[in-house]
């Protein structure tokens, strides 16, 4: 066995390992799901504040939307895991990044506000900043320039929102959801479908 043949063998093995480890493709469903759910909650919040709807209307909207979001996320997760062709460490890390981000956002919104330590104006930009962080980590794991751009979009948007006041922050946040959650979700979904068609 020559040295060259053996080095080529090891190089081949390393390539297969690297290739397999990276094998994870975002199908964009969660981007679309959460973009739509939070978008609906944001619109209803804006309507509630503008029309001075009293009582716990806003809290009710957000509690229900978040619960619906988590239920559908769990259903998607169970169905996707059954159909996955491989379970990778990268896939697990992305899943846990988003679970962590989701719980963080829920704590900020559902504990921070009642505790009166986070003003209403700061909720959207804070949650946008967390979304930027989660997208950034996800982009590095998947080596996706597209998701990295989405991350920067969320961070820049969060920076702008911090300087805005009043209920218009919610409207601006709704626009961000379309730009950095719903539209990217559809782009990722179509890319995923195309990749599946190529592999079939």
């Amino acid at each position: 066995m020559s040295t060259h043949q053996l080095e080529s063998e090891i190089s081949f093995i390393k390539k297969v390992i690297d290739d397999s480890r990276q094998a994870t493709l975002d199908n964009g469903k969660y981007y679309i799901l959460w973009g739509v759910i939070v978008g609906i909650a944001s619109i209803l919040t804006y309507v509630g504040v503008k029309n001075n709807i009293e009582g716990n209307f806003i809290n009710w909207v957000w509690m229900n939307c978040i619960v619906i979001g988590w239920v559908f996320s769990i259903i998607f997760g169970i169905r996707d895991r059954k159909k996955e062709k491989s379970k990778t460490f990268a896939g697990k890390m992305i899943m846990h990044t988003w679970i962590g981000a989701g719980v963080t956002m829920a704590v900020i919104a559902f504990v921070g506000i009642p505790a009166k330590v986070i003003p209403y104006d700061a909720i959207c930009p804070t949650i946008a900043a967390v979304a930027g962080g989660a997208n950034y980590i996800s982009s590095r794991i998947q080596k996706s320039g597209f998701i990295l751009a989405v991350a920067f979009g969320w961070w820049i948007g969060a920076g702008i929102l911090f300087f805005m006041n009043g209920i218009e922050v919610i409207l601006a946040y709704g626009i961000m959801l379309s730009l950095f959650s719903i539209i990217p979700g559809f782009v990722l979904y179509y890319r995923w479908k195309k990749e599946l068609a190529v592999q079939a």
């Binding site: 081949f12 297969v16 390992i17 690297d18 290739d19 397999s20 062709k85 491989s86 379970k87 460490f89």
Partner: peptide, 26 residues
């Protein structure tokens, strides 16, 4: 054997893999 080495290289990189995935990678 190149193909068995490739199979093992795939499986050592993931928790588990379906037949189709192994076929794609090898």
């Amino acid at each position: 054997s190149r193909i068995r080495t490739a199979i093992m290289a795939v499986l050592i990189s993931v928790e588990e893999a379906e037949f189709k995935f192994i076929k794609e990678k090898t």
